[in-house]
């Protein structure tokens, strides 16, 4: 077991290192931040001074070595635009993104499971067919366009919900949250709905497939024979058993939600990590881009590591195959 974990850990570190190299070299080939940052009226001496201050006059491998040494100490450089530590800027935005992703996950479960269970219990009814047809649509709709249409309908035409920002936030342990105030909730609803759309379709399909399988099981028949009410059978016996695959898949998909929040955050100007990276890309703010990508790579490598280890505990074959290979 420990051999397996060590091997996976080494592999994770290798992936992070290769990514850091790719990201750093790649980002430094694009654009010239000097043009952007220096006052166009600055003279030669001034320009030379700024280039020296930013370390842009050294060869690339020296810059990377310097970057790596600092990165290991948690210093990813200062943002060119904000003139603050890049890592701090990214980490500050993490709670907003996580709040959005969790809200989306919650919506997907709360809306998706009842619809999926209904479709599974009455597979031939018109409503069920409509549910399934719209879940296919949910897979095909481009997220950003749906976001625009949500704003169009709910904010511009109806004027019911605000279309951008986080609204009022409440601070707990020094972290701001939107879902604790009414204003924040109204701001959270549309982006969360937008982000959840894809997962919602997934949950509907999983819940439907699970229900259709479970209703024919012996224990449901037994519960029925005991004379339990329909509600009790559905909410206790059936629900518990369809939740296992749903929870597993959603756990795995959480990373995907964080990645896709880039799109939703841009549409709704939600001040999370995704909005930050898109703005940084437009401003050629290299340290910020590198910091975001490193944070997200570490985050994903960590999620994957945890999933791998959990799987190997649940299913020893995974571990044994890996050791042989």
């Amino acid at each position: 077991m420990s051999v397996f974990i060590i091997r996976r850990l080494m592999q994770a570190i290798l992936v992070v290192w290769i990514m850091s190299l790719l990201v750093y070299v790649g980002v430094h080939i694009v654009g010239d931040p000097v043009d952007m940052l220096i006052n166009p009226e600055a003279d030669q001496a001034e320009i030379a001074r700024v280039i020296r201050d930013l370390g842009l006059d050294r060869p690339l491998h020296e810059q990377y070595w310097y970057f790596l040494k600092n990165a290991l100490q948690g210093d990813l450089g200062n943002s060119f635009i904000f003139n603050e530590p890049a890592l701090k800027l990214v980490v500050q935005r993490i709670p907003a993104t996580f709040e959005l992703a969790l809200a989306a996950l919650g919506l997907a479960v709360v809306i998706g499971i009842p619809l999926g269970v209904y479709a599974g219990l009455k597979p031939d009814s018109k409503i069920s067919q409509t549910i399934m047809a719209s879940s296919i649509l949910g897979f095909s709709l481009p997220t950003f366009w749906v976001g625009l249409m949500l704003i169009m309908f709910f904010s511009v035409m109806m004027g019911w919900l605000p279309s951008f920002g986080r609204g009022d936030t409440e601070t707990i342990f020094g972290v701001e949250f939107s879902f604790l105030t009414w204003d924040g909730l109204t701001h959270l609803f549309l982006p969360a709905l937008n982000l959840s759309l894809f997962k919602l379709s997934l949950v509907i399909r999983l819940a439907r497939a699970g229900t259709r399988e479970v209703v024919h099981q012996e224990y449901i028949k037994f519960a029925r024979a005991k004379g339990l009410s329909q509600n009790r059978i559905i909410f206790v016996h059936l629900m518990k058993n369809i939740m296992i695959p749903v929870v597993t898949v959603l756990g795995l998909e959480f990373g995907g939600l964080i990645a896709f929040s880039v799109v939703t955050e841009t549409v709704f100007s939600w001040p999370g990590m995704g909005k930050l990276i898109i703005d940084a890309l437009h401003n050629l703010d290299r340290p910020l881009v590198v910091a975001y990508l490193m944070v997200i790579v570490v985050l994903f490598v960590f999620i994957n590591l945890v999933v791998d280890v959990l799987y190997s505990i649940l299913d020893p074959r995974v571990r044994l195959r890996d050791l042989k290979g």
Partner: peptide, 10 residues
């Protein structure tokens, strides 16, 4: 989308 974003950033 993340892989594509990293690549296009580069």
């Amino acid at each position: 989308i993340l892989v594509a974003l990293i690549l296009l950033a580069a």
